[in-house]
Amino acid sequence: MHQSALPSLTAQAERLVDLSLVADADSLRARAAQLELTAPAGSLLVLHERVLPASALAPRLHLPAPGRAGVAGETREGFVVVDMTDVDEFSPTAQAELPDADVYAVLAPERGDEMRNWSPEEALPALVAASRTPLTLVEGIHWALQAPGVVEANACFMTIGSRKIKPNGTPDARTPALWISSGTGRDGRERKGAPKVGWCWWGNRHTWLGFASSAGRAGA
């Protein structure tokens, strides 16, 4: 299941301000304070993807550089895989309906470890049957920004609340995911240990990827 502890929504707002991800810091603080009045503890603060797309968020992810414990503060920066230049075209699905609000809360996010080695095709109906809604890619990146421990070796997650719809109206066979680069192939050795936005096939299983979901969303 894995539920990484999240700070208060107002503290999360300050984190986004510190990262220079918002144009109007005072407005974000006010909306976070408003949400905090009703959203349960452990909720995640999210800026709607029309305000802050995945391509802008991914490079703000950081994880400690592997094997460099003696170098204080050295990190690896997040990135989007080279064959996902269309990352911002992955939009929320019907099972992940977003509030019509620039700032909202995701309630009780879970990584879905119990579904590791399931395919997205298998996981989606199980989440719906459990009254859970799959996280979108942007929500997943926000979660990793606020609680970096949710992206860890051999236990990461897919965000099947985001799909790309092709011109003919059918879904693209890819589904986005967050995991840690091994520094091989086109990622490059310098990215070993970096948080990575990539994709998996809709029908494939992966032993290290769960399915991030939430109990719902609440708009400010």
Rank of each mutant, 00 (worst) to 15 (best):
A11L: 09
L28F: 04
T10Q: 13
G185K: 06
T184D: 12
A30F: 11
T136F: 03
P125C: 07
E122A: 13
D102K: 12
A94D: 14
A30N: 08
V81E: 15
V81M: 09
A23C: 07
S214A: 14
L9C: 11
E49S: 10
P40M: 10
D83P: 04
G161W: 01
N117F: 13
E36I: 13
L178D: 01
R189F: 13
G67N: 09
G188L: 12
D24P: 05
L124A: 04
G70C: 07
N117Y: 09
G183H: 05
E77M: 09
Q95T: 14
S162Y: 00
I160M: 00
N117Q: 11
G210C: 00
M1G: 14
I160A: 00
T93F: 15
R76H: 10
G216K: 11
V87N: 08
A25W: 07
S214Q: 04
A218P: 01
L107P: 05
V150Q: 00
V138R: 07
A123V: 03
G193T: 05
S213L: 00
A215G: 15
R31H: 11
I165L: 14
F157R: 02
S214P: 04
L209P: 00
A39P: 02
R186C: 07
G42F: 03
L47K: 06
A108I: 04
I180Q: 02
V17W: 05
T136E: 08
S8V: 11
E14N: 13
T175F: 08
R68Q: 14
T133A: 09
A173H: 13
C200D: 04
R116Y: 02
P176K: 02
V151L: 12
V197C: 00
Q12H: 08
P7W: 03
P176R: 03
E36S: 10
